[in-house]
Amino acid sequence: MTAARWQAAWTVLVFLFILTPIASLVVFSFNADRFPSLPWGGFSLKWYVAIFQDDSVRAGFWRSLRVSAIVSVLATFIGFATAYTDYRYNFRGKLPYLAIAALPPTVPVLILGLGMLSFFSMVNLVGTLSAVIAGHVVICAPFAMALIRMRLADMSPDIEPAAWNLGASRWATMWSITIPWCMPAILAGLAITAAVSFDEFMVAWFVSGLEETLPVRILALLQGQVSPRINAIGSLVFFISITLVAIAQVITPRQAR
């Protein structure tokens, strides 16, 4: 049927649009020419070499890695704690509690960045990676919370009481039953929050000062002339993020639809 054909073609176009910037960047990062365009200038690795030798890029890269590692652990912990509290307890004020925990993704990152800049300058933390970490955890925790909450919803409501009933205290139950059950979601949460933090530039831009993370470094480069190094950096960033997200997707147990 032609109608279905057109629809399929349209769908392919939409996906092409979404994937083109990624693909193009990766392809051109191997282009020997200074300006990434056609005709093709020949295959080369020189841009990758250049960025590995660039101190500011290397420094930004390591900072981003450190930040995302710490952020993923903190954000996943907070996400777990919040998801568990939602699962296990009913209390007055639960709705505002959940709203506060879930709201950050709805506030534009720009505004979060501005707010955090103001806040951290009051406490003299602007220009530190701690400020970046604090801000990132706010943004990333809701993702971990959502993943873990979904996993908890699949745990039979009798399981924890059964463990208590058999003599396990709440801490013992948490350790030997609840956390093992949630482990796929916890791991996926770690991966996703690491990815989000690694790519996050807005809050980092406002708050990191001279301690630039990699995305902030990219932003700086962006404001200048087109530089082929960005292709190489960008491809590397893509590679890391895509790997993390792919891991999360593979680990997350999904119900058959």
Binding site: P21, I22, S24, D199, I218, I230, F238, V245
Partner: peptide, 14 residues
């Protein structure tokens, strides 16, 4: 989940 910033840069070139 992958860098929005870098994708925009890519469009800038394209």
């Amino acid at each position: 989940f992958t860098s929005y910033l870098v994708r925009i840069y890519s469009w800038k070139i394209i």
